[in-house]
Design a protein around this nucleic acid. Structure first.
Length: 1007
RNA sequence: GCUGAAGUGGUGGAAUUGGUAGACACGUUGGACUUAAAAUCCAAUGUCCAUUAGGACGUACGGGUUCAAGUCCCGUCUUCAGUACCA
């Protein structure tokens, strides 16, 4: 009987689905274990072999944990709101729900084919109203909460109102907007209702505010900081501009410190934690108030500039101040004489895009405002400058410039000829600033002279506090997250407006369903796509909804037309899996108390500052609300590395040469022959050959025979076999990616295989219109449809089977590592499976019998159990696969047929190759799924050896091995080794100076 | 610049606390089987020298510690990822 993997795999996938083998219960005598994958966005392109890598690893772990006696939760779902479906809708008019549904079907088919042990009964989709009902619900909870810094937790906004009623807000210590005014109880009671709401909005954890946002005109929406890469949108690479807009924001900054501290309690990779730490960007220092010295323009009202500094100890080195060009005081304090300079500079910087500013950090520019500030201690005047090296968005948008201690201030001072006082003892600052805090000894600084950074910082802060000119302060880089998107395919907000103030629609009316629209673009008046909706597909008993408006008691209120961003739905899905069908609560307390948190989370590192930060924020909020028992949602997290694709790249070389008549011809494509002694006739040499070593050799003056040099305009006519001097040939090259599947193993593209369906650029290029076969070079890069280098797991499953795919993806290398895919290598694991099959099933049926296992059999089995268990626990799945191969090779050589060996071996292999394991398991006479079997116990007794093959080294170099009993002590071993013939041969009569014997390990003779 | 990770055969990668470097595969070469191919099996395969026996060199580079270093220490280089006028 042969190994018919297709039949076997279909059979068991069906069995698992019909028997709900992997359905998890919310209670059990067994300990619980929750293994989670980051759920996919179902894109139109379907899965490629890179996607399932993490799913395979987590599936192996989940199956392993079941064998170890755990009640395992291993769910899967879809992050199904998002831009691509909407963009497709804009182009085709197809409703995003329809394309999303189709894509999910494809994903599900592909996932099922790989044999995952997901509990599909718990599937969630973020675009499902029964799911996003709870996303909206959390939004309402955030709106109804503020962050109390005294208790360090979120608390109901109603508590705040109670305090305002009796004593105003002067004693409130809460996370809020910077510009909250101070008011008394009396003030509060006299405020209009709108004014009160406005104030409360400044405290809420989700709030509406006019903020400068990242506006992406091409996408027609705002983007969060983490959705922008190198100044352009992450999706599509469109330019992004700063724009003031009224938007919903999440007050994640309130949680900055807890998000930072929480990292210490979770087992995530160091690099990922470091990325989050950088993003949170905590810096400890002081805020200092510099009073502006009154001038004619500003003497009516005294102004002051607040700065944040991490080096208060250097305050006596301040020789100027710098404001961001956008700083609100600039226009107020600038003197008449300097006004034209300053205005010109502001205009010039405003013209520069974010990207230009980022690209050009070397150029020093700025302007003097003509105004001066007063040094808080010396009372000396300090000139106030503006410069675009100071960012409006960080700190206060103003700095005290200490050129001797900060390189940017130093460069600025040098450039504009500002004095650079030295306040460091024994340091030369004639060339550059001195920024080493640890080595700092302060000088020329009044009461700070002779002390170090730490002490000086303390003293300055004390001094500032006495003067009322500043205080110790911690600053975070983490900004509040913009939560509004001008998009259709996202969660609608449960919000309507009364006199311009946002109101929550009562939670009992949730979900607020996404309305149907005619078109998915913004309205003619520039409103988001939801503005196109005439009838909202939701029905509220007390209020009806018509034309984007909520009508309550015949009063008409406008609805919020923005939708929530992509990360809204993914910020709590992991908890929803615990109780996915609950319509009364987001999840029952019973279920969350049982499953607690994710024990193992596997996904890509690209979510480090997005999903993984926002989810931690929501989890902490839910913890404060008493909804979840732990404030970190994932105990352990592993980032799987990317599987890279190998793109095939044909290189087109456009060249010019001097012909016989000495005339220069540039309208040529050039093909080489005799490079590296290969025949390149009708082929084109690769980029590497030309760019690298070869072109250098060529330039050195060697002659190359060029063949097939043909004119682009007339491919039929070519020069053949002529000698050209390559010194006179110039080249430009261009790359063309070729679909990988149309290249043979020798890297040849066969022209006959070309069809119109390939890219026009490729098909129409002269290169491919000529006769023959072309070589291409390979380049390893991200697997993507765009690069024509994707490998579909369905093809692999059809050709080699899901078990081969699973084993091979693991065998490729360590999970976290980036590694290239190479389909050719899969034959290794595939033939392993065939050997495994042959070990159990011979030509005439089962090979397994009740024969007693030999000592060797037991040794092989138990060392396999030990190694594989260790490997899985340490997530080195690649070495397990090698271990299986060794085990099967050994047992085959031992001609093992013993059921006592082969049956437990199947259980060890089954997490990796579950289909073949199930099939053989059932052939061995079991009616229950192998997933219910217990993992065999490792017995160290079977690995005990009586002898050891000692490596015998001379001066650290291994020369031969010697089999000796493990009972022998050091002296006995030494005697045995020294009396050995080979030892004498090595020593050639010399006396060994020293003999190192490590019993059970090694012998080293120093001579 | 800063932070993090890494650098081992032709390729992917092994090597638990310093103790036989290159497990396990891919690829390549040779052989068996076959009319042939596929499949399967066997052998060889780090580099160099040597007919063999064997030897020299080898884990990015330069030092060091040690009986012994891919592994530990110091310095340098390179690659990848993240981040960046963050005051």
């Amino acid at each position: 009987m042969k190994y018919h993997f297709n039949e076997i795999e279909t059979k068991w996938q069906k069995f698992w689905a019909e028997n709900q083998t992997f359905k998890a219960k919310n209670n059990s005598d067994k300990p619980k274990y929750y293994v989670l994958d980051m759920f996919p966005y179902p894109s139109g392109a379907g899965l490629h072999v890179g996607h399932p890598l993490g799913y395979i690893a987590s599936d192996i772990y989940a199956r392993y944990k079941r064998h170890k006696g755990f009640n395992v939760l291993h769910p899967q779902g879809y992050d199904s709101f998002g831009l691509p479906a909407e963009q497709y809708a804009i182009q085709t008019g197809q409703h995003p729900a329809i394309t999303t549904e189709e894509n999910i079907k494809t994903y599900r088919r592909q996932l099922d084919q790989i044999g995952f042990s997901f509990d599909w009964s718990r599937e969630v989709r973020t675009s499902d109203p029964n799911y996003y009902k709870w996303t909206q619900w959390i939004f309402i909870q955030l709106f109804e909460s503020y962050y109390c810094k005294d208790t360090d937790q979120a608390r109901p906004i109603s508590e705040l109102v109670e305090v305002f009623l009796v004593e105003g807000n002067s004693r409130i210590n809460a996370a809020c907007d910077d510009d909250v005014e101070v008011f008394s109880a009396q003030d509060w009671n006299n405020f209009s209702s709108e004014k009160q709401q406005e104030i409360l909005l400044q405290y809420r954890l989700t709030y509406l505010a006019e903020t400068e946002v990242n506006w992406c005109p091409a996408l027609g929406t705002v983007l969060a900081n983490d959705e922008i890469v190198n100044g352009v949108s992450e999706r599509g690479g469109h330019p992004v501009v700063r724009k003031k807009m009224t938007q919903w924001s999440m007050r994640i900054s309130a949680y900055a410190e807890r998000l930072l501290q929480g990292l210490e309690t979770i087992d995530w990779t160091e690099s990922l934690k470091e990325t989050q730490r950088n993003w949170i960007g905590k810096s400890v220092g002081a805020s200092v108030k510099f009073n502006v010295i009154s001038t004619e323009q500003s003497n009516e009202k005294s102004h002051s500039i607040n700065v944040f500094t991490t080096r208060p100890d250097t305050i006596f080195g301040t020789s100027f101040m710098t404001l961001a060009p956008e700083h609100e005081l600039v226009s107020i304090i600038t003197t008449l004489e300097q006004k034209s300079d300053v205005d010109a500079y502001i205009e010039a910087t405003a013209k520069r895009s974010e990207r230009d500013r980022m690209a050009d950090v070397k150029t020093i520019s700025g302007a003097f405002t003509g105004a001066y500030a007063e040094h808080p201690f010396t009372k000396e005047p300090i000139p106030i400058w503006i410069g675009d090296y100071v960012l409006a968005g960080y700190g206060t948008g103003a700095v005290m410039s200490v050129p001797c201690g900060d390189q940017r201030d130093y460069d600025f001072a040098k450039h504009f000829g500002i004095e650079i006082p030295n306040i460091f003892e024994g340091v030369d600052i004639s060339e550059e600033a001195f920024a080493d805090k640890e080595k700092t000894v302060i000088a020329n600084s009044d009461f700070l002279n002779g002390i170090n950074y730490k002490e000086a910082t303390k003293k300055v802060i004390e001094g500032l506090e006495q003067l009322g000119q500043g205080e110790g302060k911690t600053n975070y880089r983490l900004r509040d997250a913009v939560f509004s998107r001008q998009r259709y395919w996202g969660e609608p907000f449960p919000v309507y407006y009364v006199n311009g103030m946002p109101q929550m629609i009562d939670a009992k009316h949730l979900p607020i369903k996404l309305p149907e629209v005619e078109k998915y673009l913004p309205t003619e008046t520039g409103e988001p796509p939801l503005g196109n909706a005439t009838v909202w597909a939701w029905d509220v008993k007390q209020c009806s909804v018509v034309s984007n408006q909520l009508i309550d008691n015949e009063t008409v209120f406008p609805l919020e037309l923005n939708t929530m961003p992509g990360w809204a739905g993914s910020s709590q899905y992991f908890n929803r899996y615990m109780d996915p069908h609950n319509n009364e609560e987001i999840f029952s307390q019973e279920s969350i108390n049982y499953w607690q948190q994710v024990d193992l989370y596997i996904g890509g590192s690209e979510h480090a500052t997005g999903h993984l930060l926002y989810s931690r924020f929501w989890q902490k909020f839910m913890f404060d609300k008493g909804l979840v028992p732990v404030d970190e949602f994932a105990k352990k997290l592993i980032n799987q590395g990317m599987i890279l694709g190998t793109s095939a790249i044909a290189h087109r070389i456009n060249g010019g040469y001097y012909d016989y008549a000495g005339e220069f011809n540039e309208d040529l494509d050039v093909h080489f022959e005799n490079i590296f002694n290969e025949d390149f006739t009708n082929r084109i040499v690769s980029w590497d050959l030309l760019e690298g070593k070869l072109i250098e050799e060529a330039i050195a003056g060697e002659k190359y025979k060029l063949t097939n040099v043909f004119r682009k305009s007339d491919v039929e006519e070519f020069f053949d076999g002529s000698q050209f001097d390559v010194e006179k040939i110039t080249f430009t090259t261009s790359k063309i990616r070729v679909p990988v599947e149309d290249i043979d193993l020798k890297n040849h593209i066969i022209l006959e295989k070309f069809t119109e369906s390939y890219s026009d650029e490729l098909y129409n290029s002269d290169l491919f219109k000529s006769n023959g076969v072309f070589t291409v070079s390979r380049e390893v890069e991200k697997m993507s449809k765009r690069w024509a280098n994707v490998v579909n797991p369905e093809d692999i499953c059809n050709d080699y089977g899901a078990d081969s795919l699973r084993l091979y993806e693991m065998f490729l290398g360590p999970l976290e590592q980036y590694k290239p895919w190479n389909t050719a290598g899969i034959t290794g694991v595939h033939s392993f499976l065939k050997k495994l099959w042959k070990l159990y099933v011979g030509e005439n049926g089962l090979n397994v019998n009740d024969a007693a296992p030999t000592k060797d059999n037991l040794k092989t089995l138990h060392k396999t159990i030990k190694k594989v268990e260790e490997d899985i626990e340490s997530f080195s799945f690649n070495t397990s696969v090698s271990t299986f191969m060794i085990a099967v090779n050994e047992l085959t050589a031992q001609k093992s047929t013993s059921k006592d060996i082969l049956e437990p071996l199947l259980v060890v292999i089954s997490p990796y190759a579950p289909h073949i394991a199930e099939e053989l398991w059932s052939q061995l006479g079991h009616s229950e799924s192998i997933s219910t079997a217990e993992l065999p116990q490792f017995d160290a007794g079977h690995l005990v050896e009586s002898t050891k093959n000692y490596p015998i080294s001379f001066n650290g170099k291994m020369r031969f091995t010697l089999e000796l009993s493990l009972d022998m002590n050091k002296d006995e071993i030494e005697a045995a080794v020294l009396s050995n013939e080979k030892t004498k041969e090595q020593l050639q009569g010399r006396e060994p100076k020293k003999v190192i014997v490590v019993p059970g390990k090694i012998v080293n003779i120093v001579g």
